[in-house]
């Protein structure tokens, strides 16, 4: 089991070092992600963009501990996800990571409040306490009045807000969102984006979001562009040198001169 408290609390919520993912083996193997190094600072919204098959979703899965990398490591608040077994990784996920999916992915037989309370109950929190916290999370996304509705009785935008509440309820270190507006009309998409933005600005949440939408990219603190499984560009936001410096300061060396550090270079 991972420790309940992070081993270190540096400027980065999550760091991916030299991350590689290969599917299959032999001649049929496909390298979905190739030597990617990236770090995510607290309280920022990061957009991951790129064409289909560029490795965006694979990166998100590896950052979320949904899959094990073929090579490299993922440090979530100092804990290497790749070194954990399935159960420990799952527990880490439900305590520290919130997911928001394009297809909402709510459990159809559970009501809104039950869907939101689910990760807490899975973690052994009592049903009544879980529901109290779920109610608060639903209030934050403006859906308290829909708490007893099943997913099929709600609009797409509402379902996505329930999914966001489910991600929020665990007070996650990081929210991973995979095309959260992809299945919504433009009006609902805007509202969801505003909600995510407000979570970052008002609550200090950290969000990594995969998207095709250039508008979302413009609103992000930083944009990571990917192509063919590689990081090709790190856009606005912390400069690569800033990033390296921050890592050094976290390590306590104080040395800020390392312009050729490979970490922030797109591979």
């Amino acid at each position: 089991m991972p420790n309940d408290t992070p081993q270190t609390r540096g400027p980065f919520v999550i760091e991916a070092n030299d991350l590689t993912k290969i599917y299959g083996s032999g001649e049929t193997s496909v390298e979905a992600l190739s030597h990617v190094t990236v770090a995510v600072e607290r309280g920022k919204i990061i957009a991951v963009m790129g064409p289909s098959g560029s490795g965006k979703s694979t990166l998100l899965s590896l950052l979320g501990g949904l899959e094990r990398p073929t090579g490299g490591q993922v440090l979530l608040e100092g804990v290497d996800l790749a070194s954990l077994n399935d159960t420990d990784r799952t527990v880490m996920r439900r305590r520290s990571l919130g997911f928001v999916f394009q297809a909402f992915n709510l459990i159809s037989v559970l009501t809104a409040i039950e869907n939101v309370a689910l990760p807490l109950e899975l973690d052994g929190i009592s049903s009544s306490l879980a529901k109290q916290r779920a109610t608060i999370a639903l209030e934050q996304v403006g859906l308290q009045h829909r708490k007893d509705h099943f997913p099929a009785m709600m609009s797409g935008g509402e379902q996505q807000r329930v999914a966001i509440a489910r991600a929020l309820v665990i007070e996650p270190a990081l929210i991973l969102a995979d095309e959260p507006t992809g299945n919504l009309d433009s009006s609902s998409g805007k509202k969801i984006l505003q909600l995510l933005r407000s979570l970052v600005s008002e609550r200090g949440e950290t969000i990594v979001m995969v998207t095709h939408d250039a508008e979302i990219g413009r609103q992000a603190d930083r944009v990571i562009r990917m192509c063919d499984g590689k990081l090709v560009e790190v856009g606005s936001g912390p400069h690569k040198t800033d990033l390296a410096n921050a890592r050094r300061s976290a390590a306590g060396t104080g040395d800020t001169s390392d312009p050729d550090s490979p970490e922030a270079h797109p591979q």
Binding site: G64, L66, D86, T90, V91, R94, R95, N105, L118, L122
Partner: peptide
Amino acid sequence: RHELAVMRAVGATQSQ
């Protein structure tokens, strides 16, 4: 299958 996968993603262990 899909819902079970979602549950795994949001934190349900294999045993759960």
